[in-house]
């Protein structure tokens, strides 16, 4: 991607450390800059950003694998949280790994849209095709780095409130761009 980098005279000079631990987001037009540091925050950010467009659909296999359980006298309290119908004795319902129960039709429909539990957001396995993009990197490091690229894109999106521009041509190493170029013209373009 053409990552825009900017030197804002009002901003304090950020210190560069290991590029894997720091991401700097700069919006040249709005004069905005965000620095994200540390593996911990990156991880949580990663989680949030992964959900930016919602959890991807659950894999067919994982939907199939959910056990069918019978509603008995001892566990008929409550309702299906999706259709809000109360449980009926001896009805057969689906139980997710997180133990939450739903009508088969209700939960399957949801999991084919977003693969998480409607109640606790427990995440279901995702189909391989969905992960393909992340997996083709091979080893862990590559995958991590590619994911970091996604962080950058999402964030720029967010800050801009503008769709399009910068996320068309992702590069594989946005984490490498550092704030070390004191350009007087406010931004330069890296490839």
């Amino acid at each position: 991607m053409n990552s825009m980098e900017e030197r804002d005279p009002d901003q304090e000079e950020p210190q560069t450390t290991d590029p894997n631990e720091r991401i700097i987001l700069i919006h040249p037009l709005a004069q905005g800059m965000v620095v994200i540091e540390g593996a911990t925050s990156l991880e949580s950010l990663l989680r949030d950003m992964g959900n930016k467009y919602g959890q991807p659909p659950a894999s067919k296999a994982s939907i199939e694998a959910m056990p069918r359980v019978e509603i008995g006298e001892d566990n008929k309290d409550g309702e299906c949280a999706i259709c809000l119908e109360e449980w009926e004795s001896s009805a057969i319902v689906r139980k997710m790994t997180c133990k939450h129960r739903f009508h088969g039709n209700c939960v399957e429909k949801w999991l084919k849209i977003h693969g998480n539990c409607p109640v606790c957001r427990y995440e279901m396995p995702v189909d391989d095709e969905e992960l393909g993009k992340k997996r083709d990197g091979g080893d862990e490091g590559r995958e991590w780095r590619r994911t970091e690229r996604e962080i950058w894109v999402s964030f720029a999106f967010n800050g801009n409130r503008r769709n399009g521009d910068s996320n068309e041509n992702p590069s594989s190493d946005s984490a490498d761009f550092s704030p070390s170029s004191p350009s007087a013209t406010d931004y330069e373009t890296e490839s």
Partner: peptide, 8 residues
């Protein structure tokens, strides 16, 4: 994106 059908 964070909608869930268990919300009302």
């Amino acid at each position: 994106d964070q909608w869930s059908p268990a919300l009302t």
